[in-house]
């Protein structure tokens, strides 16, 4: 069933210089094919770390586009570069001393009040998150929504690089999530109880037996254990 495909070559312009690369590569792999060996600009290579934030324009299009180089196919006529670094100040705080009161985020990141709702951050987000909405939610103290809407953030920094109000969205989202996780989400009772049991030594004997057990008996125990459906 295999079709023998002759790879078509396309032209891309890496930082302005023209290169020919095979069609169907990601931007990251296309740059490597062209001879770039990344130090910066490549991390997980799978869309999870945000190291490969990229800015580009497509052929015959005025739009300034942003994407993850490891998750975006290179196209013919693309003008592109990777963003090695996004300078951004992070607020330092002791989570223990914070609360979930509505003003908490704006007190640590007062610049979010400069948001004019231009939505440029949302347009820049390679994860398609509603970035402006979570900044707005943070501004009005809706920590729940800020945490939920920012959850899939990879912290690539493209939003912050594009923001006319100089907001560092991804740090704001991080704060919202930690406050939400610590002070809003209910704590797990069974987890606490289990830790109390462990501390009280409830499993010590059984564990002692297991670690000392001979191979055959261990195998038997293992094979005969019941499996929760």
């Amino acid at each position: 069933m295999t079709e023998d495909i002759k790879t078509r070559m396309i032209k891309v312009y890496i930082m302005g210089r023209e290169y020919e690369v095979p069609e169907g590569l990601t931007i990251m792999k296309a740059m490597e094919y062209a001879g770039y060996r990344f130090i910066r600009g490549a991390g997980c290579r799978a869309g999870f770390c945000g190291a490969c934030g990229t800015i580009f324009r497509k052929k015959d299009e005025y739009k300034f586009r942003t994407a993850l180089a490891c998750q975006t196919p290179a196209e013919d006529g693309m003008y592109l570069t990777e963003l090695p670094f996004v300078p951004a100040n992070k607020a330092e705080y002791e989570l223990e001393e914070l609360t979930s009161e509505p003003s908490i985020i704006v007190s640590l990141y007062p610049e979010i009040a400069r948001c004019v709702s231009c939505n440029t951050c949302t347009k820049a987000c390679p994860q398609d998150l509603q970035v402006m909405d979570y900044i707005q939610a943070s501004l009005r103290g809706d920590i729940n929504q800020a945490a939920e809407l920012s959850f899939d953030c990879l912290q690539c920094g493209l939003c912050a690089a594009r923001c006319p109000a100089d907001i560092v969205h991804y740090h704001v989202g991080q704060l919202a999530r930690r406050v939400y996780g610590k002070y809003v989400l209910p704590r797990s009772q069974h987890l606490k109880e289990r830790n109390d049991e462990i501390k009280a030594g409830a499993f010590d004997q059984e564990m002692e037996k297991l670690t000392a057990m001979g191979l055959e008996q261990l195998k038997k125990l293992y094979t005969e254990r019941d499996i929760e459906k």
């Binding site: 948001c115 004019v116 709702s117 231009c118 939505n119 509603q130 402006m132 909405d133 707005q136 501004l139 009005r140 006319p164």
Partner: peptide, 24 residues
Amino acid sequence: RWNCCGTVYSLASDDLMHQLAPIR
């Protein structure tokens, strides 16, 4: 879905950036 209204209407006639919030 909503965002801040823009707080304080901008009186500058050429400053459309600040009108985005309410119109959105």
